[in-house]
Every structure is written in structure tokens, then in C-alpha cells.
Simulated scan of single mutants.
Amino acid sequence: MDGHGLASVIHRAAGDPVLPGDVTARARDLGPLESPLIWLSLASAAVAVLAVVVALGYRRRVRRWGCTAFGVLLLLAAVTALNSYVGYVRTSDDLARLLQRGPGAVHLAGRLLDDGREAPAPASASAPHESAGTAAAGQRIDVVDLPDPAHGIPSGSTYVILPPGYDTDPARRYPVVYLIHGYPFGGPRDWLTSGDAPGTLLALQQANVIAPMIVVSVDMTAGNPSTDWECLNVPGGPQLESYLAGTVVPAVDRRYRTLADRTHRALGGMSGGGFGALNIGLHHVGEFATLVIALPYDDLNDSVGILGGNQAAIAANTPRRYLPAMEFPAPISVMLAVGTGAPTDVTTAHRIAGELRARGQEAVVHAERGFNHTWHTARATLPYLLAFADEGFRGSPTTS
């Protein structure tokens, strides 16, 4: 057992953590609103209504109301089936926060459904340690507004998950993992809801798998979540890479008791946020020693248009092009997490890992059986990603 008392995790030679079964089972579990029973029940009800309409179709009122009910039930079945597959809305709280993004009556319905728990309110810049919300078992969740007009970033909500004991041990400093949401229509709250980062952190810490750490879910929407920004410095648009590395990281280091050096700092994300973490991490090896990426890709593909045909910018932001010849001023460790049900992700992850190893860097691919390119995979692999980050933190001397 090492200095942190972390006896419950055994590490393979390749660096892929082997975690307690209760932690991994919890991460793979479906939330109540993800159950296939919901859409199966709705689909069955739609079929039953259709049968009634067919049997009593000669009655105009039955036909009119029956067809309407059939359509509504079929739509709800389709939506809930999609959610069961993707894993975006786990609980009624998740649904409430999703509805609150909508206008008018939809927003009001979300407000009524929201019970107020784990829903932080923004903390002011002048009061950086003001509690913006309380999570279970001593965690604290702050949400910090970090506007950066110089980089084209308006007001937003970056969530900071502080570990139990943060407020009672003022001398202790913590490593930090930065997580980026997916694109488009993603947001920083997704890692708290769909990704269940607070619950995963707590489960890992209670099992003595990881030492306490700070996790920051960064707002990389630039005020427009419908745009697939890919965390880029967009010509004539928001400079998201510069914002994260040059604004968010220093702001977190100033406001919180972090271990403010590269070896105690990890960057990760899922899907589009995973691409951003890979690209930004490779551009900023001096700031991040560890990358933890779910559902990775290394090419802009359909998002290349965001760079407006600027060939130099495209080449500089396509890891598949520049990684094979990249020089590393400092070593990095990378974990790439995929679901075996998404063969393209698996191929891409192994390609990226191979290129990194060819450049002398540590790279691990973790494959989660039976999952696809969805939030289910991101949530199921998050314990491995955080444990991998912790492994790097524990192997680094404290310098601040």
C-alpha cells in the first residue's frame, strides 16, 4: 500500500486499472429513465390503441382520438428508446435540467420537475469559494462563470467538483482533472448528469481506489451549444483552445487549492470533447501530463468546415496528420476508452495509441464490452479514466 493508502486497485503492466466489481457495476447500471421497459411499455400501449382504432374505426371520435393517442405514444416510445440507447437522461433530475434548456412552457415544466438538488447556481467571481451547491457525502459543487471576451467567450457555467474534506483541511492541495462535454448540443452539466462524475468520484474514493481530486467540467460551448466547435481556435470566432489552456486552468489554480503543475493536471473528454482533449493536450504538453479520453477520434471529418477552409489551421488541428512526426518536450500518458460495439472507435483508439507509442509515449486502450459511441460508454469508462489519471498523479512529486 502506498502513501495514499490505495490498496484496493491493482494495475496491469500496461497501465489499465483493474477496479472493484461494485464500482464498475455501478458505472454500467442504467438509470431509471434509461430502462428499456419504458419504451417497450409505450410501444405496447401504442399497439393496443391502434388495435382499438382498427376495431372501432367506424366511430369518428374513437378514430380521431385514437389516432392522436397512437401518434403520441409512438413518439414517446421512439424518444425513450433513443434515450435508452444513448444514455443521456438517467433520472428525473436529468430530465428536469434538460427541459430547462427549452423555451416557455417546456422550461417551466423543467423548473417544476427539478427538486433543486445537485443543481448549482453560479458563484460570483469575487467570491470564488462560495458554495454553489452540495453533492452527497461531503462533496461540494461550485459553478464558476469565466467569461473571456478577448477570446470570444461569453458568460458560461464551468462546474468544479470538490472532494469531501476540501473545506475542512485548508492545508491540502489537490490534483485536477478537466473534462470536456460532447458536441453539438452538449454542455458542461452533462458530465454531472449523463456522465455521473460526482457519483463515480465518490464511489472510487470510498473504495480507496483514488486519492481525492478536483474535477472541473469546462464550458466549451462559447455560448452556442448547437455549434460543433470541436474545442478549436476558430478563425474569426471563439478561441476555445486558448480559452481552456490560458484562461480556465489559471483561474482554477487561483481560486482553488490545486497542485498547479503539469504532472498533477489531466485533460479529458468524450466524443467531440475527447477530440478537443486530444488536440489541446498534444498542443499543450507543458500544461497537461495525462490525457483521459472516451470515444476518441483524431480527424475533424465533417467538422472541418468550422475552420473555413484554412488549410494551415486544418493541418495544425488534425492529430492524425501531425502526431506521427510530433516531438514531445515532456512525456505524457494517455488512456483511450471505447465500447466494443463501435468498431470505428476501437480502430481509431488503437491507431492513436500506436502513434503515441511510436513517439515514446505511454498509451493505453480500454475497451468496454457491449457499448457503443454513447454516454453509456463514457459513464462506464469514467472510473477507469479517473483511476488512470490518479495513477499518474501518484507517480509525480509534489511541487506546489
Rank of each mutant, 00 (worst) to 15 (best):
330 A>K: 05
342 A>T: 12
322 Y>F: 15
292 V>N: 03
369 R>A: 12
352 I>Y: 00
376 H>E: 06
327 E>W: 08
335 M>E: 14
374 T>N: 04
353 A>D: 10
327 E>H: 14
372 N>D: 10
305 G>S: 14
299 D>Y: 06
325 A>P: 05
346 V>T: 14
354 G>P: 13
294 A>K: 13
379 R>H: 05
361 Q>C: 02
302 D>M: 12
319 P>Y: 00
341 G>A: 12
302 D>N: 10
377 T>A: 00
334 V>G: 00
378 A>K: 05
309 G>P: 09
328 F>I: 13
381 T>V: 11
377 T>L: 03
292 V>E: 05
304 V>A: 01
338 V>L: 06
332 I>A: 01
306 I>D: 02
305 G>F: 04
305 G>L: 08
364 V>C: 00
307 L>I: 14
362 E>S: 09
323 L>C: 02
327 E>V: 12
331 P>Q: 07
324 P>K: 07
351 R>C: 01
329 P>N: 09
315 A>W: 08
349 A>W: 08
359 R>F: 02
312 A>W: 07
387 A>Q: 13
305 G>C: 04
348 T>N: 06
298 D>I: 12
345 D>L: 14
339 G>M: 11
320 R>M: 07
360 G>R: 06
377 T>D: 03
303 S>Y: 04
304 V>H: 01
373 H>W: 07
320 R>D: 10
319 P>N: 01
314 I>Q: 03
375 W>I: 04
291 L>C: 04
348 T>C: 00
386 L>E: 12
377 T>R: 07
339 G>H: 09
305 G>A: 13
323 L>T: 11
349 A>N: 14
301 N>A: 13
312 A>G: 08
363 A>K: 09
327 E>N: 09
300 L>H: 08
321 R>P: 02
299 D>L: 07
302 D>G: 03
387 A>H: 11
312 A>Q: 15
379 R>F: 00
324 P>Q: 03
330 A>C: 04
378 A>Y: 03
338 V>M: 04
316 A>L: 05
358 A>E: 10
332 I>V: 15
380 A>K: 10
306 I>M: 08
310 N>T: 10
346 V>N: 12
369 R>M: 06
367 A>H: 05
306 I>F: 00
339 G>N: 12
298 D>A: 08
387 A>R: 11
382 L>W: 06
293 I>R: 12
339 G>K: 14
342 A>G: 09
297 Y>V: 11
302 D>V: 14
345 D>T: 13
382 L>S: 03
378 A>Q: 05
369 R>F: 02
346 V>P: 14
304 V>T: 13
350 H>M: 06
346 V>D: 13
341 G>I: 14
364 V>K: 09
359 R>Y: 06
313 A>D: 12
384 Y>L: 15
361 Q>F: 01
336 L>I: 13
351 R>Q: 15
300 L>V: 12
306 I>P: 07
386 L>I: 09
298 D>T: 12
363 A>T: 09
363 A>P: 08
315 A>C: 02
366 H>M: 06
379 R>W: 05
373 H>P: 06
301 N>K: 15
